[in-house]
Structures are given as structure tokens and as C-alpha cells.
Simulated assay, not measured.
Amino acid sequence: MKKLLIYFLIVSSLLTTGCFFKQQSYNDTRFLMDTIISISTTGKDQASLKSTTDEAFIAFNDVADETDRYTSHNPNDLYALNQHNGQGAFAVGDHLYKLITMGKEEPYSAIEISLGPVIDLWRAHGENKTVPTDEEIKTALAKCGRDKFTLDKTNHTASLASDSSLDLGAIAKGYAVDYAASVITKNKAVTSALINAGGNIKVIGTKEDGSPWRIGIQDPRNAQKVLGVLALQNGQAIATSGDYQRYYEVNGVRYCHIIDPATGSPARNAISATAVSTSALTADFFSTLLFILPHDEAIAVVEKTPQLEAIIVNPEGEIYVSPGLQKIFTKEN
């Protein structure tokens, strides 16, 4: 009886400490939104992790399809809306309506979702390694602006002016990350997860050993190095915009893919801007905004915006780290 009691106590101890329930992990990587998307999950049941990860990718893909301006996926997507410009009200999908509403109502003019014509102009010139003329840029900018599109909340429709088109590149990926994360958090069997959409990252839960998630910030001028490492906690999200991700050069001048609506040309006030928040959408939006704004204005935005922290590298290579990150950012020597 004594031996049986000892055996029972040992088994109870093992169960209590979780030794019989070794944490499982599941990782999957796919190509969506013109970038590599990886989702890593941890929990006690491998089958549950796989099914949840698959569901998260389905959610991500739904947003990707609906916000793709270059390819048709369904009758209510962004491609279809842009093709319908100048023809009146058009019924759009739920994700698309939310993002267009955000683009219409957000207060910063440096983020403009109607820049489709300008983006197309630079994209065409980029293929030939040429630079648009001032007149070409002026003509394209004339087709942009928040007066070029309207929304009807009652009928869930959007209308575009003739020759206008929307581009949601500054916000769609972050929105997709949040949407995928909402699927993962519904499964209580998942104890932690990390979603990485080409640098748009959100962490869920805590690592098995209780340590924070360590996220490296790319050195914008050396692909083999990082500026430093951020220690993120449960629910935090991070996004980085930089002139090193997609660009071309003409006569030694770099032209990146992020357009300043004020000039119709690639932004040049920063070479990298990283935003940290509790929402991947918020981080995505502000990383773009902080990249476009003049350095002093960008810092002022960070300082006045609740739950926003940032790391900004100006063209001279000077690094600004906001006060809320200084204790959790370890700079590389």
C-alpha cells in the first residue's frame, strides 16, 4: 500500500508539473501578399495546432484576395472596384469596406490610399529603370485624393472617380495579421504563436520558458546585420517600412516603393521606420507614416500617440528609439 501511495504521488507530481504534457509546436510557411508568411504555434495537441494554423492561413488569404489590386479573386474585391471606377456605386467585401473606411477617415494626409495611379506610374518606370517626368507625376497626382472616392455605409458600397484607383499597401498586411491572430486566439489549446508577414509581426502568449519574444530589427544598409533586438510581450505587434525592401536605382539614386503623397515621388525622410503597438494594423499604418513624415514630425507623432513606440533611422543613419522601447531594445555594437 505504501509503494502504491508513493507511485500515486510521483504520478500526481508529474501531471502537475506538465511532464506528461510536453509542449508541441507547429510551423507553416506560405507565399501571400507578395511576401513570405510564416505562422508558428505552440500547444499540447499537434492536430489542433495544425488545424488552427490552417484556419489562420485561410483567414489571411481571404484578406489577401480581397485587397489585391492586380488580380481578380472575387466579384467584390479591390481589383473589381478599381475596374469599376467612374461607373458609380460598387458593392465591396467586408474587409475591403473596413480598410477603405480607415483610409478615408484617418487624419494623416501622408497616408493616401488613392495613390494607385502614382504607384502604377512608378512601377512602370521601375521595370525600365527610368524616372517619371514632373509632368507625368503631376498628371498621376491629379487622379488621387480623398475626394476621388466615397463610401455608402447603408448600402456597403464604394464609388471611385474616373481613372482613379485605390492601393491598400500601407494597411492591408497588418490588418491580415490581426485577422489571422484573432483566429488563433479563439483556440485555447494554443498557448503561444508568432505570425510573421514579411516583417509585419504579431506575438501571442508567452514563450514556453517565459522569456520575451526577441525580434531583430534589420540594418537598412547591411542585409547581414541587425540594428538591434526588441523583446516583445504577449499581444504586441511590430512592422517596419524601409527603402531597402523594394527599390531600384538610376544614376546612383535609390527610388523605393513608398510614395509621399505630397510630392508623388518616393519618400526620403527616413531609410527605416519601425512601429510597435498592440495591433498589427496600427503598427503597419504608423511604420509607413513615420517613414514618410519629416523626422521631427515623425517623432512628434510617436510622442503624442498612445500605445505607439518606434525606432526611426534618418538618412544620415541616426537612430531614434522612443522612450517606451529603450529598456527592451538591445542595440548591436
Rank of each mutant, 00 (worst) to 15 (best):
G235W: 04
D45G: 05
V301W: 01
E316P: 00
A170P: 05
V177C: 04
L293Y: 02
T130D: 04
A280T: 09
Q46R: 06
E303H: 10
A310C: 07
Y244R: 13
A275L: 12
K148H: 13
F286H: 08
V276I: 15
D68G: 10
D178R: 10
I195Q: 04
E208W: 10
F21E: 12
L166W: 03
F291P: 01
G43Q: 10
E316S: 14
Q326K: 15
T206L: 08
A275R: 08
A231E: 09
K207E: 10
N82F: 13
K304H: 13
E135D: 08
S182Y: 07
S192E: 11
V63I: 05
C256V: 07
A300P: 02
F60H: 02
I217V: 15
T52N: 07
N76L: 04
L166T: 00
A91V: 14
P220R: 07
I258E: 03
N251K: 14
L232W: 04
N333G: 14
A300L: 11
N76S: 14
N76Y: 10
I39Q: 00
L49F: 11
A298M: 04
G116K: 09
I39D: 00
K188F: 09
D163Q: 15
I299K: 07
T42P: 00
S38W: 05
W122T: 00
R221A: 08
L166D: 02
D209F: 02
D68P: 05
T53D: 03
T53G: 01
L81V: 04
I292S: 08
G264E: 01
F57T: 05
V226G: 01
Q46W: 12
D34I: 08
F8P: 00
L5D: 11
P132T: 06
A197G: 13
I184K: 03
Y175I: 13
G126V: 03
